[in-house]
């Protein structure tokens, strides 16, 4: 009498594929940035008392060459008020925060008009600083 051997099928466990796909999606979400300002070179000014600040979608950066950027895009100072106003319209009342990332050696001729532009646009100023330990 012939005893037939069981023919075992070796298959790839497809159940794990969902997790692999999920991992890949997670990696790309983390790596993809909508506002990539990592190429901008600036050093924050120091202050003795700083606090944790909320993130904001509106960021004005002044780099070490005194170039002004709004959300990573170079802008002239004259264009700032109008552009910030447009962006602030999309923010809810009470959360109209504008982050200022100004290089510590920037001169008043550059940063003062920026502060005035943000103030005129109706934004709440938040200076991004590091803690200065004496």
């Amino acid at each position: 009498m012939k005893i037939r051997r069981r023919h075992l099928e070796a298959g790839v466990p497809a159940v794990a594929m969902a997790d692999i796909a999920f991992n890949l999606v997670l990696f790309f979400i983390i790596l993809a940035r909508t506002q990539d300002d990592s190429n901008l070179r600036w050093k924050p000014a120091g202050a003795p008392k700083v606090e944790a600040i909320e993130q904001s979608r509106i960021v004005v950066t002044v780099d070490e060459d005194s170039k002004v950027y709004l959300n990573g895009v170079p802008k002239g100072i004259g264009e700032l008020t109008g552009n910030i106003e447009k962006l602030l319209k999309e923010e809810p009342t009470g959360k109209k925060i504008v982050l200022l990332k100004i290089h510590k050696d920037t001169l008043a001729a550059t940063f003062e008009p920026i502060i005035e532009a943000v103030s005129q646009a109706g934004g709440d100023l938040v200076h991004v600083l590091t803690e200065e330990r004496e």
């Binding site: 924050p44 202050a47 008392k49 700083v50 606090e51 944790a52 600040i53 993130q55 982050l99 502060i115 005035e116 103030s119 005129q120 709440d124 100023l125 938040v126 200076h127 991004v128 600083l129 590091t130 803690e131």
Partner: peptide, 13 residues
């Protein structure tokens, strides 16, 4: 890491 800084209310001149 959360960023640190200082809020400033600057009234328009």
């Amino acid at each position: 890491e959360p960023e640190t800084g200082r809020k400033q209310k600057v009234p328009s001149s």
